[in-house]
Design a protein around this nucleic acid. Structure first.
Lengths: 339, 339
DNA sequence: CAGTTCAATGACAACGTCGACAATTATTGT
DNA sequence: ACAATAATTGTCGACGTTGTCATTGAACTG
């Protein structure tokens, strides 16, 4: 393999001078620099990261540890955000999935250590309170889309489910809806409670009574093997005598079944029934007809800002661990109309 | 950082002996081995991959280079398959996305080289004929979900779109459907033509005339900004006097709109109209009601086998570049009935 | 013009690991 | 008991880089 030494020989300079050129250090004549650069090009030399790392004991690598994220369609955008940041800042990214196994997680931390990772982004697919097995290790860590048991442990960055659900609810209320159905997310997901709370609270603020709200459970059970009641729940809600004029869905995916339930009963969307989702999982929200009004989870920015934050922590910025929250933007499409 | 030397000191042996223990080499007394292992545990020593790599000039790392894969919900399973294989075989994975930019792609190859990657898995999101800018580099490469311009360049592994579409068509024909609609995938995708050809050919084999087939374009235009005609096409097909009893969808996502179009016209699925998808994109195929019968793209296995194959190439197995094809399994759910 | 400063370059060591080989000790055969 | 053999352990150098310090020579100061 062509090394810095071969380049030095070819350019007739010392290896240190080549090193200076590569790293853009000063104290190199323009003429020497050009000679070296030519040699680099001619030989196709590319610096060896491993050697660099060993010398500087900095790997310039971040690790992403996830439960299912990169294996799941939903939140790949988090990973994309991280990758984009890393790419723009000359960092390398190592990704590994625990698949929920803590044995596997321990192995991953070992692997990260053996690569002398500078920092870790701990990402979960479903927003949750987690307790990374990182205990025994002290690699700087930022939690993305989840939150540590005790707020002091690590910095965390999450979507603002509450605000998203509030905005969505307001959106409906401001358009005159006074009877609203709500089909709940699987309660084991942290976002589920937040979204429901926001819905309830906002409805109350607008003077709605509890009896104006038809709240039903849409799913429950362990992730990946949940019971699905969405279709039945939507059908039931829509058949009530004094039926709601709008239904909020726990997420976009569940909205598919609400659409189908509504249509099976002969309702037109949105004329007869308005529907809103959550997540802006575009494969669904844009494939539905009419396209779904929803709140966009800021996944990409979660990743981007998480990486940036981690970088600051790694660089030694003494930021005390804190929770940061990113807004969910309301995406107005065609599934809501005024009454 | 704790190195092999600190361990050696702690255990009262030479660093070479520690190295032997770490790598499970013979010629170490059981007693010494234990002493060393204790020291390793006490000090929390983890071998330094970078050092290992410069010593052995083998990085044990594979690179994944993709267009949009890891940024897109569809084919993350490919990545998961690769990761699982890598994990089981002690390899490290580096992922990078070109996002379609060839400038970016060039940078990625450089990055891979600087990490002294052993081999590259070239993965595309949409099956296509590609021509990696790898030309100037000679890193062993296996193409996954795509195919090189000239078959001799690199080995490739792809899903068998033709077989999948054939099986799906047969499934309908065997259930007595004699008038079938087909809503086409965006023609810029390689799979589009294969699937359509299989549909046409199989229908002909069963004695159907061209007039029994209602073939419509569902989407066209550049990926990410395509025109969507699915709903209109489905509506039109279903309003024909002698309408089809079944519709094949270019993929699962498009099937959403077919469902909605059918329901809007008052058809029940599958009693009045059978529908099949393609891909088995479970977020959609299982969320639909009734659940969608479809053909599963073997993404996970594509990744797994691609990685395994690459490993053999890297190890020096003189396999001449060839195309390998993996079957798409028919997934029978509830959206089809006999007529 | 002597003395000082500074830019350009190089020599060398060290990072952590492991392969080649040497040295030491234990075991075996006669 | 003594050489021959085998098992165990150690020494040293090299991988590719860059940090530290040294050297050279030219430009500047007064």
């Amino acid at each position: 393999m062509v090394s810095i030494i071969s380049v030095a020989k070819a350019a007739g300079v010392s290896n240190k001078t080549v090193s200076r050129v590569i790293n853009g250090e000063p104290h190199v004549t323009e003429e020497t620099r050009e000679r070296v650069e030519k040699a680099i090009r001619d030989l196709g030399y590319v610096p060896n990261m491993a050697a660099r790392q060993i010398r500087s004991s900095r790997s310039n690598t971040f690790g992403i540890i996830t439960d299912y994220v990169s294996t799941t369609p939903y939140s790949v955008d988090i990973v994309r955000g991280i990758q984009d940041w890393a790419n723009a800042n000359g960092k390398t990214i190592l990704i590994a999935n625990t698949v929920g196994s803590s044995e596997r997680e321990a192995k991953i931390w070992k692997m990260f250590q053996s690569h002398r990772i500078d920092g870790v982004l701990y990402v979960t697919m479903y927003r949750r309170i987690v307790d990374p097995a990182a205990g025994d290790v002290s690699i700087p860590t930022v939690m993305v889309n989840c939150r540590p048991q005790t707020a002091e442990d690590w910095p965390s960055i999450e979507p603002d489910d509450f605000q998203g659900a509030r905005d969505l609810t307001r959106h409906l209320l401001e358009r005159g809806h006074r009877k609203i159905g709500y089909i709940r997310l699987n309660p084991i997901l942290l976002g589920a409670e937040l979204r429901l709370d926001a819905f309830r609270q906002t409805a109350r603020e607008f003077g709605l009574a509890d009896s104006d709200l038809s709240i039903r459970l849409g799913m429950e059970g362990p992730v990946g093997a949940e019971e699905n009641y969405v279709f039945a729940a939507a059908t039931e809600i829509l058949q009530q005598r004094d039926r709601p004029t709008a239904i909020m869905s726990g997420n976009d995916e569940m909205a598919i079944q609400i659409y189908i339930a509504a249509m099976a009963l002969g309702f037109r969307i949105p004329q007869d029934i308005s529907i809103v989702g959550f997540d802006d999982f575009r494969t669904v929200s844009m494939a539905l007809k009419p396209q779904l009004t929803t709140a966009a989870l800021p996944y990409y920015d979660l990743g981007l800002q998480g990486a940036e934050w981690l970088n600051r922590v790694v660089a030694g910025d003494k930021i005390r661990p804190s929770r940061r929250v990113l807004a969910c933007k309301l995406i107005e499409r065609d599934s809501v109309c005024s009454v």
